[in-house]
Amino acid sequence: MAFQEVIFWVLAVSSVAAALGVVLLRDIFRAALLLVVVFLAVAGFFVMMNAEFLAVVQVLIYAGAIAILIIFAIMLTREVQQGNLPNRLQPAAVLFPVLLLAALVFVAVDTDWNLLQDQSRELQDNVEVVQTHTIGGIPDEMRGDIPGSDRSGLGELLINDFVLPFEIASMLLLAAIIGALVLVRER
């Protein structure tokens, strides 16, 4: 547990510091590189929370595709020479996020979340019992009982319960591709 906390604090400090760098640095190209640091730290959080598939997707799509697109846009426009200047809204733009942060932290700490910690603790105890009684770790037939170790549930849910949002997402991507092509086409 202590190891997990160390990892959490390293990732938390690096992601928040890099996010502050993204919005505060003058050099916009460095801001884009720090954004990649935030994406990788968030992928680390996903691994901590038993979402390995989403961590891989995060690295592929955010740290790969989206970061490359943003760096492309910085190079194709003349962002780098102009730098990252604040606009006229500065006092309100500081005040409003600070107020929102205070409200969100209050809600997160004060709410009585309906957690299933007892259930997960029970499952962890089961895993420990299995590990102490078998040589070479967990037997294959027990592996499906460990929470988060069965990735096939994600795909089944995606094509059963969430099939309509899934199809709408595919249409959205198609429309985005065609729209982007039409927008940047020379005529």
Binding site: V23, A73, T77, A93, V94
Partner: peptide, 8 residues
């Protein structure tokens, strides 16, 4: 809220 550049 506070930055001018559309990319940022």
């Amino acid at each position: 809220l506070a930055r001018r550049s559309a990319v940022l």
